[in-house]
């Protein structure tokens, strides 16, 4: 991806996310209040994060691959289960993958 395309993506992403916040601040409240909208938005957040997790763990270009990332995510899951803070979870994920790769695994 060219540098121009990355800049365009970054600027468009900023405009979209900031725009959504501004719409929420100026739109009349009754337009968007209500249980169905909140519920659906919560589920969209969960679906996207789960999809990103799956692809970041097992995706490789246009395809799938099983490698050190899977063990790293499993370790991160154990850390979360033990109620480790977010930053520790991220560091544990990186450390497990880096360690396995230092041992020669993919």
């Amino acid at each position: 991806m060219s540098d121009t395309a990355v800049w365009a993506t970054v600027l468009a992403g900023c405009a979209a996310c900031l725009g959504l916040k501004l719409v929420g601040a100026y739109v009349p409240r009754h337009w968007l209040a209500g249980e169905p909208v909140n519920r659906l938005m919560g589920l969209v957040t969960v679906a996207l994060l789960a999809g990103l997790l799956a692809v970041q763990t097992a995706g490789q270009g246009q395809g799938l691959a099983v490698d050190s990332r899977l063990a790293a995510v499993a370790a991160a899951g154990v850390a979360l289960w033990l109620r480790a803070p977010f930053i520790a979870v991220v560091i544990i994920g990186a450390a497990v993958a880096a360690g396995l790769r230092a041992l020669g695994l993919p």
């Binding site: 763990t57 790293a72 995510v73 977010f86 994920g93 497990v96 880096a98």
Partner: peptide, 10 residues
């Protein structure tokens, strides 16, 4: 790359 996956899980 694994850190990014761990972040999404977190």
């Amino acid at each position: 790359d694994a850190a990014a996956a761990a972040a999404f899980l977190g």
